[in-house]
């Protein structure tokens, strides 16, 4: 493999008490990218991240982070030396103050960045002497982010980094992420329910549905690949089946056939013309629609 993947999983599986959370997940995230990880609740996003960090043991398949094996306890310690994690619950030590937990965390990372620490303490306006349990959710998120950004990590794993935050705070978080990627050699892998966020800062995306990756790749390339072809007929639209590769969905609506394609429009338009339509239109598809299309309805 010529590329160096920062995160790589192959056929990753995890079952909890007979419930399959991951059913063969294949994922590749290249260095230096901001990769958005989208999926419905319970699709397996948090489980994936926890496996990468050695918090959860997979039941099958492989996962590698920075070239190290996630299932090996020794490699896992090394992974965590170079990776930072912000979980969904922003779980920290409630009885410590902001200052104490910063000092505590810094002690584990010889490459701790004091300059970034000062910058983010100031920027996020974190009160040094306040106990963590007295912080608001937004403050706790920012503190968690600070602890993640200052440790000189090569990879950031973030589970719903902006959940529960007001738009201004969410933007602060996104900006800190963008700035970090711009100025340091770092890769960001974040899961989110906010598609607009992923649209805004990600250059790669992976969509997970029921334990498998259904769509993955460069975001711009995906936006170019996915399109909607609208075919208008003189009379009722025929019940045609399209054999072009990449046809995801065909919708009949009176005189209009709408086709969602994931492999470009050309082949579909070819087949469409054979049906002698009145008009054929090709439209862009938003990431939201790609997501809604790929992540099927709950069972």
């Amino acid at each position: 493999m010529a590329e160096s993947w920062v995160i790589e999983t192959a056929a990753l599986r995890k079952s909890y008490d007979g419930v399959e959370a991951l059913r063969g997940l294949d994922l590749q995230v290249p260095a230096g990218s901001i990769c958005g990880f989208l999926g419905r609740n319970g699709a397996g996003k948090t489980t994936t991240m926890k496996i990468l960090l050695g918090m959860v043991h997979p039941t099958g398949g492989q996962a590698r982070v920075l070239g190290l094996a996630a299932e090996s306890p020794r490699d896992s310690v090394e992974i965590r030396r170079r990776t930072a994690f912000v979980g969904e619950e922003k779980d920290l030590y409630g009885t410590m103050t902001v200052e104490e937990i910063v000092r505590f965390t810094a002690a584990f990372f010889p490459r701790w960045r004091d300059d970034l620490q000062q910058r983010y303490l100031r920027k996020f306006e974190l009160p040094l002497n306040r106990k963590i349990k007295a912080l608001s959710r937004g403050m706790r998120t920012k503190l968690s982010l600070l602890l993640a950004l200052c440790r000189g990590a090569e990879l950031l794993l973030l589970d719903e980094p902006t959940s529960g935050l007001d738009p201004a705070m969410a933007e602060d978080v996104l900006q800190a992420l963008v700035a970090q990627v711009a100025n340091e050699a770092i890769t960001v892998f974040f899961s989110s329910h906010q598609i607009a966020e992923v649209d805004q800062i990600a250059d790669r995306v992976a969509i997970i549905d029921r334990g498998r990756a259904v769509v993955a790749g460069d975001l711009d390339e995906l936006r170019e690949r996915f399109c909607r072809v609208r075919i208008v007929f003189d009379g009722d639209a025929p019940r045609a089946s399209f054999r072009a590769p990449g046809v995801e969905r065909v919708q009949r609506d009176g005189r209009v056939l709408t086709i969602l394609s994931s492999r470009g429009a050309d082949a579909v338009v070819e087949e469409a013309r054979a049906l002698h339509p009145l008009s054929v239109d090709v439209d862009r598809v938003t990431l939201k629609e790609i997501f809604l299309e790929s992540a099927a309805a709950e069972e």
Binding site: G54, M55, P73, V77, R80, G87, L92, F108
Partner: peptide
């Protein structure tokens, strides 16, 4: 206990042992 910061501790570069 998760509310005691267990996940945070486990995300540190220290072996469980």
């Amino acid at each position: 206990s998760h509310s005691g910061g267990a996940l945070f501790t486990l995300s540190l570069p220290v072996s469980r042992r």
